[in-house]
């Protein structure tokens, strides 16, 4: 149990230093924190505009002793729509970080397979950054990222740069080119898995829409990867981040405390985790 923090449900107002539209629906924010969050990759913050509302948003920058906080916000409701109007110099309310993230020590020496669907790339970027920052601590890194059309692709330039790192392969896919120029592949994120070399010591990390997990897990199971070597990042509509509001409960677990990053072996028996 932690000591009681009287401000745990009251956000700190944090300055936005950079805001850019990444797609028609997603806006990227860089904020300057008054003090480092010291988050783990995979953790989230509760982001808000006082008077409008609050929502859980994944941290999309790597961890470290820095004052940077990066968030990618998809316009989905009134709050996230209002956030699309925020620019450099404005403030955003931030609480957190919350949840359990990835332990980089476990990745040491392992091959890593990262599968991202759509917005799932944002939280996974918080893991990819530290993996690439200390490239020689880890084995081969394969990143599969899929989205609907080229216009929906996130972090395009960064993905290209990641693919140029030694021992790192990035497979970018769209479901449909929608008559737009496209230099990646066409298909679902499951398709490239069959062609990969996946030794048993590989760690796989998945983040995407609920429907993606089922098929990627089937594909990985077919390749014999143990379920305690697969991490999934689950999404629920948290209201508090401190395990009280009940909205993110998955059977006896709460997504905001026990997740959002779960080992597949820990949740596969829970009927409410994936469907």
């Amino acid at each position: 149990m932690k000591a009681m923090d009287p401000r745990i449900l009251t956000p700190a107002m944090v300055r936005i230093v950079e805001a850019t539209d990444m797609t028609a629906h997603e806006r990227f924010f860089r904020l300057r924190l008054p003090r480092p969050l010291r988050h783990a990759p995979g953790q989230f913050v509760m982001a808000s505009i006082p008077g409008i509302g609050e929502a859980p948003i994944s941290i999309c920058c790597g961890p470290g002793d820095h004052d940077r906080l990066e968030l990618l916000v998809r316009s989905a409701g009134s709050l996230t729509m209002a956030m699309q109007q925020l620019g450099a110099g404005d403030q955003m309310g931030i609480r957190g970080p919350f949840g359990t993230g990835f332990d980089l020590a476990e990745f040491e020496g392992c091959d890593v397979l990262i599968v991202a669907g759509g917005l799932g790339l944002a939280p996974l970027r918080s893991l990819i950054e530290p993996l690439l920052a200390e490239r020689n601590r880890f084995g081969r890194i394969t990143i599969i990222s899929g989205c609907r059309t080229p216009a929906d692709e996130l972090f395009r330039d960064e993905m290209r740069a990641w693919g140029r790192a030694p021992g790192t392969r990035v497979i970018r896919l769209v479901n449909d080119t929608a008559h737009l120029p496209w230099d990646g592949e066409v298909g679902l994120v499951t398709a490239p898995i069959a062609g990969l070399d996946i030794p048993p010591a590989t760690l796989a990390v998945l983040c995407g829409p609920p429907v993606m997990y089922k098929f990627v897990i089937m594909e990985l199971a077919a390749r014999g990867l143990a379920h305690d070597r697969i991490f999934i990042d689950l999404e629920r509509r948290m209201r508090c981040g401190i395990g009280k509001c009940g909205h993110c409960q998955i059977n006896h677990l709460t997504c905001c405390q026990d997740g959002p990053v779960f080992r597949l072996s820990a949740v596969e028996a829970l009927p409410e985790a994936l469907a």
């Binding site: 149990m1 932690k2 009287p6 009280k244």
Partner: peptide, 14 residues
């Protein structure tokens, strides 16, 4: 017990 667990809820506990 519930409100004190893990991350305590200050509004309830005060």
């Amino acid at each position: 017990r519930f409100q004190r667990a893990t991350i305590p809820d200050p509004h309830y506990l005060v």
